[in-house]
Amino acid sequence: MPQANGNLRVDLRLIADMVASGSRVLDVGCGDGALLAWLGRHKNVDGRGIELSMAGVSAAVAHGLSVIQGDADTDLEHYPSGAFDYVILSQTLQATYEPKTVLSNMLRIGRHAIVSFPNFGHWKVRSHLLLRGRMPVTDTLAYAWYETPNIHFCTIRDFLHLCRSLNIVVERRIALDRNGDMLRGWAGRALANLFAEQGLFLLSRKDESAG
């Protein structure tokens, strides 16, 4: 529904598409609440947010959204199990202290989790290390090693491995290019770990899955 998703940042459009109408959503790292506001208006979603920056929280609250200042590492544990239909973590997993705990908490709190992160398996990243012998600095990973907030990088394959070990079902996986657009064909499927700059996943708990 490209028309219905107009005006939303391109990487948020795909996330919005994964959310069912009328559901309860927790957006972790929600920024100024753009996604929550869109979901509230167009999909009748009851949304809550967590955001680290005062400016982000202040902007979101000033637009009538329910957002708390906090972060994924410290605040998720205080939410009760099953409180949400979807818990969203966009481009933040690699910046958390304990990604495994965060992921577990997301699927404890929500029936579904929607996670996106930069893919450290992308060929440019690999070539940086292989050919230059230096830590990769790319468009999606724009920080030098000494100042990056990204402390827990993983590849798409790493992430899938973690999901398996946590009994998490991958319902959908989408490979994205640097602009957040979907990669199609072989680059987005079998070779996603080599050609995707970002991975986007719709996850659910094993006991909740239809199969």
Binding site: A37, V61, A62
Partner: peptide
């Protein structure tokens, strides 16, 4: 004050009270 006013305004909308004239919400026209 921005947070206070914004929260009150959002709550007013949910309560069916008149809202102040506001800027566009985030996600609108970005």
């Amino acid at each position: 004050h921005a947070t206070l006013g914004g929260f009150l305004d959002g709550a007013a909308e949910h309560r069916g009270l008149p809202r102040a004239v506001k800027d566009r919400a985030p996600g609108d026209g970005a």
